[in-house]
Design a protein around this nucleic acid. Structure first.
Lengths: 111, 111
DNA sequence: TCCATATTTCAATTATTCACGAAATATGGC
DNA sequence: GCCATATTTCGTGAATAATTGAAATATGGA
């Protein structure tokens, strides 16, 4: 991961609504949630939600797929892992820092 | 960690210079670096550096200590670990996601 | 086709952030 | 005390981001 991508991802998360959305999707797992469900759960009006989802998508932190009238969003766990790895890269000159296992749920994607 | 603190930490990292500073300090380890050294390595003018260090300090991501004429900054590994934990909390409803070991170099702080 | 629901775009406003020179403020050595 | 070095504060201009109602655009079902 390169610096610019990391800055974009961090900026996407550095906002209360978007952080809540992302965490909700992380906790939900690969199945994801419909946009309207996210808005309902978090109390975010449709236009604001659309704005924030675009930010998260652009940052690569969430994926979307169309399902009938709904847009289903899910966390991009690979991007999340890349970001965490980037932040901790070469920690402490390599001394004494355990390697960081990643979220292993990727690919399960059982719709 | 609570949401507001996480947003502040993420916002602090969501800026190219500050992200570079933080990563430099993470890689340097607990010994830290003088402000002037950071500015020199990254090519950031003093007033800008001071501005950014204040942001990082305020976010709790770095610690500072005075050493003679120098201010030595070091990454706050505990805060970093808290942030990473917060982001991945309850990932995928707890299924299949390995717990994430933390940076274990904390407390070594050999000056 | 027509309607209801889901989502996105638009526009205008408000607020926050960044960059950095210049000046002010420490600190230690002599 | 004086000087050199280290750091912070201040001021200002330019840029970016957030909020949200209203309107536009899909999509599926009857």
């Amino acid at each position: 991961m390169e610096t610019k991508a990391a800055v974009i991802a961090l900026a996407a998360l550095a906002q209360e609504s978007r952080l809540a959305i992302f965490r909700l999707l992380v906790q939900t797992g690969p199945n994801g949630l419909a946009a309207s469900k996210i808005g309902e759960v978090l109390g975010i009006p449709p236009s604001s939600l659309s704005f924030h989802m675009k930010e998260l998508s652009h940052a690569g932190l969430v994926r979307s797929r169309q399902a009938s009238r709904y847009v289903i969003y899910s966390a991009n766990f690979e991007a999340m892992n890349d970001l965490l790895t980037f932040l901790t890269e070469n920690c402490c000159e390599g001394r004494a820092c355990a390697p960081r296992p990643l979220c292993t749920d990727i690919g399960e994607a059982l719709e």
